[in-house]
């Protein structure tokens, strides 16, 4: 066990006091490695909470720069950051909250050609992306590498999330099979999104990452949690692994990663 300084004990005291976390759990967080894909509405709150929790190594991937229209919900980015790489902007805030952690910004998009190399250094992945092509790419790469991940999506007043333990619980393709045709996907500029629901969902995803690392509680495996913030109605639908899943079923037809056309939607 590491030697805690007085400052560390005080910083992490509210975790250490929890019976289900304790010194042992905090130790696991300090040794933990989480990759956040997308420094947008979901990735922003997730990044801040994971940094605050003392997760030892946090990677954050985004190939985009901060735009004024992001600030309504992407809370790691400030007005002064407009034009800055999003991953750099988020990393600056994470380091400001907790200078003791290691932060790796990746100012790039993920493709079939680079995703496996990047994710395999991490224990857990948070999908905070805004388009179906990347969501399926993340699912497939995590299934191939055997890395658990949290899927998340938001639109208008609605959110949905599930956590995947590859090979053990239902994957994203077990449930949704394949990306919808691009012309059927509303773009966010058409659909809009209430800023605060990004925080609602992103913090659920951060909680899943912290539970995974500490071993506390039960993960959102084989469950799809959805909410409608207009009615403030939360539901959980039970899922199970699909025998006919194209990637984790008994006769997988997807055996390598491929890029598909993204239906770009800036959530």
């Amino acid at each position: 066990m590491r030697d805690y300084t007085e400052d560390q004990l005080e910083r992490y005291s509210r975790h250490i006091l929890l019976k289900d976390v304790g010194v042992e759990g905090q130790e696991k967080l300090l040794d933990g490695k989480v990759l956040i894909i997308g420094a947008g509405g979901l990735g922003s709150p997730a990044a801040l909470y994971l940094a605050a929790a003392g997760v030892g190594m946090i990677g954050i991937v985004d190939g985009d720069r901060v735009d004024l229209s992001n600030l309504q919900r992407q809370i790691t980015h400030f007005t002064k950051d407009v034009g800055v790489w999003k991953a750099d902007s988020a990393s600056e805030k994470m380091r400001a909250i907790n200078p003791e952690i290691t932060v790796h910004p990746y100012n790039q998009y993920l493709f079939a050609s680079n995703i496996r190399e990047i994710i395999k250094a991490y224990d857990f992945v948070i999908d905070g992306t805004d388009n179906f092509a990347t969501k399926f790419l993340i699912n497939d790469a995590c299934v191939f590498e055997g890395i658990p991940f949290s899927h998340g999506g938001i639109l208008r007043f609605d959110g949905q999330t599930m956590t995947v333990n590859p090979g053990e619980s239902a994957c994203y393709r077990c449930v949704f099979n394949a990306p919808p045709p691009p012309n059927l996907v509303p773009t966010c500029s058409q659909a809009g999104v209430l800023g605060a629901i990004a925080g609602m969902l992103g913090t659920i995803q951060a909680t899943e990452a912290l539970k995974f690392l500490t071993g506390a509680g039960n993960m959102l495996y084989n469950k799809l949690l959805t909410f409608d913030a207009l009615k403030m109605d939360f539901r959980t639908v039970n899922l199970r692994k699909n025998e006919n899943c194209p990637i984790c079923g008994s006769h997988p037809v997807i055996t390598e990663l491929v890029d598909s056309d993204p239906a770009v939607c800036d959530l």
Binding site: M1, Y4, L9, E10, S13, R14, I16, L17, G22, V23, E24
Partner: peptide
């Protein structure tokens, strides 16, 4: 409080 119990938990975790 709460560093009283935090300190106690730290030692209890080590022994």
């Amino acid at each position: 409080c709460p560093m009283t119990f935090v300190k106690a938990k730290l030692v209890l975790a080590k022994i």
